[in-house]
Simulated scan of single mutants.
Amino acid sequence: MTSTDSLLIEDRAAVRVLTMNRPDKRNALNNELTHALLAALQTADRDPSVKAIVLAGAGKSFCAGADVNEFGGFVNSGDSANANANSAAQAALDRAHLTTNLHRVFSQIAKPVVGAAHGYAMGGGAGLALACDMLVAGVSLKLGYPELKHGIVAAIVMANLVRQVGRKAAFELVSLGEAADAQRALALGLANRVVADDAMLDTAVGIAERLAVFDAPAMAATKRLFHRVADLPLQQALDASLDTNLMMRSFRKERANDK
């Protein structure tokens, strides 16, 4: 377990707290932070001493989205300009795959993740907040998708958004680009709690501590099944639920026999 300049890692008993630490950039996601966060989530998932995870942001914001300053313009001409353009295109492609992997990992890992979001959670930052299994919002939260205002698309983050709110509410968020405050996020089902900013992290850790006491295999099966049935037709969802029910009954029986 190693903290980096951009990501702080702290264990509070069985809860691992990951704090994005670029407060001067509103914790905007550059390559370093994105790689660090992806690795930290995967490491926490493999660590048997960690039962739950909290994701937070240092300073006055959760995460302002992608750090667009990481990709500069091109001032050269001729072959050099073409080489720079090709290099930038490859970097953008690599970044898109990295971002997708980061948003995907939340549903892949077995440990529950509780977000603690305050201040700005924009674009990719809003996507991270929604990727968490539960979200505690500070009263200062401003969650939104302003990409269209800048001539780009809220592409990777849209998948989670559409699955968590109704279609019309999701389209409003990505098309108008207006930020939802904490109470609006709660009303839309994007947040589970709204608390004062200074109580937000402790509240999130408290929820994570409650999740951490449950049987780890049962929690892992619950999370895995939750994500499986979310988008399945009813009959397939019931079949998946039956499979999990039978698996856990067999697992409990085997453990009882081992005692």
Rank of each mutant, 00 (worst) to 15 (best):
G73V: 01
D181S: 10
I109P: 04
L186Q: 10
L173K: 09
A66S: 02
N101W: 02
A237G: 15
M20P: 04
T203F: 00
Q235I: 14
D47T: 08
A89P: 00
M247R: 12
T99K: 10
A187S: 15
A221G: 10
G127C: 07
R46L: 11
L246V: 12
A96M: 05
S3G: 06
V205H: 06
P48K: 07
L55H: 02
N69I: 10
K223W: 06
N257R: 15
A204H: 02
N31A: 09
T244P: 00
R224S: 13
A117K: 00
V113D: 03
V105F: 04
H35A: 08
Q108S: 12
H150W: 15
Q235H: 14
N27K: 05
A81Y: 12
V174F: 07
V157C: 13
L7N: 05
V229N: 00
E178R: 12
A204S: 06
P48V: 05
I152W: 13
K253S: 15
T244A: 13
G125C: 09
A91F: 11
P48T: 03
V157M: 07
G177I: 04
M1S: 07
Y145R: 09
S241R: 05
A36N: 13
A126D: 10
T99W: 10
D231L: 10
A117V: 07
L225I: 08
N160I: 14
M219N: 05
A185K: 03
L128K: 08
I207S: 06
A85W: 15
S250L: 06
A221E: 14
R104Y: 09
E172W: 11
R163H: 11
L8E: 10
H150I: 07
G124K: 05
L201K: 08
D45F: 01
D198R: 12
V17E: 02
T4M: 04
N31S: 08
A129I: 03
Y120I: 08
